[in-house]
Design a protein around this nucleic acid. Structure first.
Lengths: 219, 219
DNA sequence: CTTGACATAGAACGAATGTTCCGATAGAAT
DNA sequence: ATTCTATCGGAACATTCGTTCTATGTCAAG
C-alpha cells in the first residue's frame, strides 16, 4: 500500500478502535474489531493492524491480548492530544476603549493570567486570547459583566462571525455579528430584539478579532 | 472486609493497575497483576479484584481479557483526576417546558452526549448536568439560542444565585437571579435593563437547579 | 499471458487469560 | 472448643485471543 494512504477499511478500524477504547477503557480484541468492521477473518484484521502500525497510527505488543496502543499521531488526528488549552488573559474589554491585543507570543504564562478551556469546546486552538468583560455595555451582544470572551486575532472575517470592532468615530468597542452588504457593513446584535447598526463607511471600523467562545461563571 | 477499607494487597493492586494502564495503554491481565504484587494464585487476584469492584474502585467486564476499568473513585483517590470533567447533556431547555433532570447516574457515557469542561472553570464538580438552550426565550438572562448551561441540581439556593425556575401558573421555565424578599420572591433578569418579576406566592415556583456555568460556542 | 505485490478468507494451533472448585489457614465471634 | 467468615493457594477447565499457514482473488506492470 502506498505510504500514508489508508483504505476505507483501515479508516473504519481506527475509528472503531478509538471509540472502543474511550468507551470501554481497554482496547478491542482482533475479533471484536473484525466484527465491528465486517471482517470475518482474524488474519485479515491482523494484517490491517500491522499496516496501521507501519503507518504509525498504532503500536502493538506481541502476544498480548488487546495489546493495542493509540499513538500520538492517531490521538492528534482525532484531536485528543491534550485535554485543556491554556489561553492568556490579556486584559479587559469595555466599550470605551479598543480591545487590548496580545503583545507577546511567549507560550508560557502563569496560571493567574490564563484560563483553561477544554479542547473540545474549540475548533481552532491557535492565536487565541481571552478578555474579561467589564461593565454592562455589551448586553446587546448577550454578554454580561464578568464574562470571559475567547477571541482570535484575525483580520479576515466572514458573514455572520461575531467580532470585536472598534468604531473610530464613536471611539467605542462593541461585539456584534458582522455582515457585508454591498459597500456597507451591518453590525447585528446577538440579541434579536435589538436593532442593527449600519456602517456606511467601512474605513470607520476596525475588526480587532473574532469571538470564538464566551464563558460565564456563576457563583 | 469492613466496608471501605482496603488491605495492603489491594492498595498495591490498585497502584499497579493504575500505573500499568497509564504506561501500557491497556489494563493488565490477572496474572500480570499477581506477578507484580506477589500473588501466585490467579484466583486470589480474581478474588481481590472483585473486592475492589465491590468497593467501587474498579469495574470489570466478564469473560473479557484485561477487562478492567478504573472508576472515578480510583482516579480521584490517586489524585489523577483529569483536568477536564465530562458532564452529561441531559437535554434541552426552553421556556415552555420544565427543565429535564438527569435520570441516571451511570458513570459511563459516550462523547456525543457529554460536554467537557476544564476543571478550573468549576468550583464544584458533583451533581452537574448540561442543557442546551433552545430558542430565544432566555435572552433576558443573557443566554442565547445554542448556549450550553451547566447546572447543578440543588433544592437550596441563596440570594443572587442564578437558577432555573418553573413557574407553575405560567407553565414556563426561566433563568433568573433569585432573591428572597420577605414572603415574596424576586426574580431578577441578568439583563439590567429589564424588569424583575415579583412572585407573591412562593408555592408557585419550583427551583429546578442552580446555573453554574454558561458556555457559548461561536462558529 | 505471466508475474508479483497486495489484499482477503478460512481454518487450525497454541498461548494467554478468566473462571471455578476444592481445600487450607487465620482470626473473630459465639 | 466450635463455628463462621474472610482470605489464600493450587489446580483444572473453558474461553478468548494472537499467530500462522494455505488458498484464493485482484490488479497493474512486464
Amino acid at each position: 500500500m502506498a505510504k500514508g494512504k489508508l483504505s476505507e477499511r483501515q479508516r473504519r478500524m481506527l475509528e472503531f478502535i478509538e471509540r472502543f477504547i474511550v468507551e470501554s477503557g481497554y482496547p478491542p480484541s482482533i475479533r471484536e474489531i473484525g466484527k465491528a468492521v465486517g471482517i470475518s477473518s482474524t488474519s485479515v484484521v491482523n494484517y490491517n493492524l500491522n499496516r496501521l502500525v507501519e503507518e504509525g497510527y498504532l503500536a502493538r505488543d506481541k502476544n498480548v491480548s488487546r495489546g493495542i496502543r493509540m499513538t500520538e499521531k492517531l490521538l492528534k488526528s482525532v484531536g485528543r492530544l491534550t485535554d485543556v488549552i491554556r489561553i492568556r488573559k490579556v486584559g479587559r474589554i469595555f466599550a470605551s476603549e479598543p480591545v487590548p491585543l496580545p503583545s507577546t507570543d511567549s507560550p508560557i504564562f502563569s496560571a493567574d493570567e490564563a484560563i483553561e478551556i477544554s479542547r473540545d469546546l474549540l475548533s481552532i486552538t491557535e492565536g487565541l486570547f481571552a478578555l474579561e468583560v467589564k461593565g454592562d455595555s455589551m448586553i446587546d451582544a448577550m454578554v454580561s459583566d464578568g464574562d470571559v470572551v475567547i477571541m482570535r486575532r484575525e483580520p479576515e472575517w466572514r458573514n455572520g462571525d461575531m467580532v470585536a470592532v472598534w468604531l473610530k468615530d464613536k471611539e467605542e468597542t462593541t461585539l456584534k455579528h458582522i455582515y457585508r452588504e454591498g459597500n456597507k457593513v451591518r453590525l447585528q446584535p446577538a440579541n434579536p430584539t435589538m436593532q442593527p447598526i449600519i456602517i456606511d463607511n467601512p474605513e470607520n471600523l476596525e475588526v480587532q478579532g473574532k469571538v470564538v467562545l464566551v464563558v460565564r461563571q456563576l457563583e
